[in-house]
């Protein structure tokens, strides 16, 4: 009879261990099914005055690419923008943008005000292309190697620490892949 009164304590102990392990995990990291796979099609019209648009074939021309999905209405995109600008200034990698469900005038104003890190920007007004890429919110960033395979998917804004810890190492890996 007596041991039965210990059941709640034992259950709680198990729960506490699980919670402790859980503390170290980030539930917001969601593995992408696309990692290691070729990037999906990417044929998008350009933002006016920023020709050309995006063509999938260019992703496989041997040069690594950073693909950033953004919108002018997205608050976190403003947070990550300085990091994107820094990457562009150092000319570390070719950067292209997918402008997600945005108004073109707003998108152009966003780039005029905060700076334009992108070599080219494709307009995904309906969000269809972004769905193919598995995007479920903006911003999201992909690092592709020279063969157009997705090496990394980063969900949410790129903060300064993300740049050091995730983005730059992935870019380095992408470059190693093309220049063995």
């Amino acid at each position: 009879m007596r041991w039965r009164s210990f059941i709640p304590l034992a259950l709680f102990a198990a729960l506490a261990v699980a919670l402790f392990v859980g503390l170290d995990l980030n539930p917001r990291i969601i593995p992408s099914a696309l990692i290691g796979k070729p990037a999906p099609a990417l044929d998008l019209p350009p933002l006016p005055g920023k020709e050309p648009g995006l063509v999938a074939a260019r992703l496989r021309d041997g040069e690594p690419t950073l693909v950033n999905v953004w919108a002018s209405w997205c608050g976190p995109c403003r947070i990550e923008h300085p990091q994107l600008m820094a990457l562009a200034e150092d000319e570390i990698i070719r950067m292209i943008g997918i402008n997600y469900k945005d108004r073109q005038a707003n998108a152009l104003r966003f780039l005029a005000q905060l700076g334009d890190p992108y070599e080219a920007v494709g307009v995904d007004a309906t969000g269809r292309t972004s769905i193919d890429w598995g995007v479920y919110g903006v911003p999201e960033t992909f690092i592709l190697d020279g063969a157009g395979r997705i090496l990394l998917k980063h969900v949410g804004p790129i903060r300064e620490e993300d740049l050091e810890e995730k983005i730059l190492p992935a870019i380095a890996a992408a470059k190693r892949g093309t220049e063995p």
């Binding site: 009879m1 007596r2 009164s5 210990f6 709640p8 304590l9 709680f12 102990a13 506490a16 919670l19 402790f20 503390l23 170290d24």
Partner: peptide
């Protein structure tokens, strides 16, 4: 994260302590 660890410690003391007391005294 430090907050998480602290609350978890609080949880262990409060819940674990009271359930241990229950286990010993309830019978």
């Amino acid at each position: 994260p430090t907050r998480g660890v602290f609350i978890l410690a609080l949880l262990v003391v409060a819940i674990g302590g009271s359930l241990a007391l229950f286990a010993i005294r309830a019978p």
